[in-house]
């Protein structure tokens, strides 16, 4: 896309055109901030966090924001799903950047800031809520992509509550030996899946998981291609929301 647009601009007669090929992922990885659009802060499926003190949040906060003062952020991290897009604001630009760094280094994949922090939001005419904070609970539900299962469905299957599901753990035997395995689950590493397909039930739904969802998705694609009814869990299984029982070796 970068090269296409740069080429178009060049054709239109622009003389100074540069292409930042590494793009947004490299920008974020280098510790730099990204900013979300107002409409996304208002309507996106996000976790919006007010880093200021509770008193300030009571006096006025961005609509839908959860009050998590920066001092409490570390303690509250496990309440935020790792896959959720997280948007932060403060009244201290440095604090917002620090929080962004903290979350990214904890494994959060999509963290951005509100442009101009709280005052920027107010200036842009964004909606404000005032008054007592009824709850600081963080509730976020992933909008599932094709082939994904909910954590609840996955938990039901590993708890043994869904006999029509065959659960595959696609991690390596070494990882399973070290970390344990969920109940009602068979360990068949991604590597072995193509050679062991004949063992899998065609009449059951297959759920695949791994440690983050990356290998599970590969296994999902492979099984789907071969005509299986299959879904996968796109979740870092250490995420506290995945509270499934583990059998230790």
């Amino acid at each position: 896309m970068t090269t296409k647009n740069a080429g178009l601009a060049k054709k239109l007669g622009y003389k100074n055109v540069r292409a930042y090929l590494e793009g947004e992922p490299a920008w974020s990885k280098a510790g730099n901030p990204t900013y979300s659009m107002k409409s996304y802060v208002e309507k996106g499926n996000i976790v919006l966090i007010d880093l200021r003190t509770s008193e300030k949040a009571v006096n006025g906060r961005v609509k839908r924001a959860v009050s998590v003062p920066y001092d409490d952020l570390e303690d509250r991290m496990d309440d935020i799903p790792r896959n959720a897009p997280v948007i932060l604001y403060s009244d201290d630009a440095e604090e917002a950047i620090d929080a962004l760094d903290d979350l990214r280094s904890e494994g959060f994949k999509h963290v951005s800031l509100v442009k101009g922090n709280y005052s920027g939001w107010v200036h842009s005419g964004g909606e404000i809520v005032t008054g007592a904070i009824a709850s600081t609970e963080i509730s976020w539900v992933r909008i599932l992509g094709p082939g994904e299962i909910t954590v609840a469905d996955f938990k039901k299957a590993t708890d043994g509550g869904d006999p029509n599901v065959f659960v595959i753990d696609s991690r390596t035997p070494d990882e399973v030996a070290q970390l344990g395995i969920f109940k009602n689950t068979v360990n068949i590493s991604l590597d072995e899946i193509p050679n062991r397909m004949h063992e899998f039930p065609k009449d059951k739904m297959i759920y695949v998981h791994c440690s983050t969802g990356a290998r599970a998705e590969m296994a999902f694609q492979e099984l789907k291609k071969n005509g299986f009814k299959v879904k996968f869990l796109f979740l870092t299984i250490s995420d506290p929301i995945c509270d499934c029982e583990i059998l230790k070796p």
Binding site: A6, L12, K15, E22, G23, P25
Partner: peptide, 24 residues
């Protein structure tokens, strides 16, 4: 950009433009 051409870009052709996307 294909559709709206230079109307969405700065008028000054000397202006430095930096394009980016989500990686190569």
């Amino acid at each position: 950009l294909k559709k709206e051409q230079e109307t969405v870009l700065p008028a000054n052709r000397e202006q430095l433009l930096v394009f980016y996307c989500g990686g190569p």
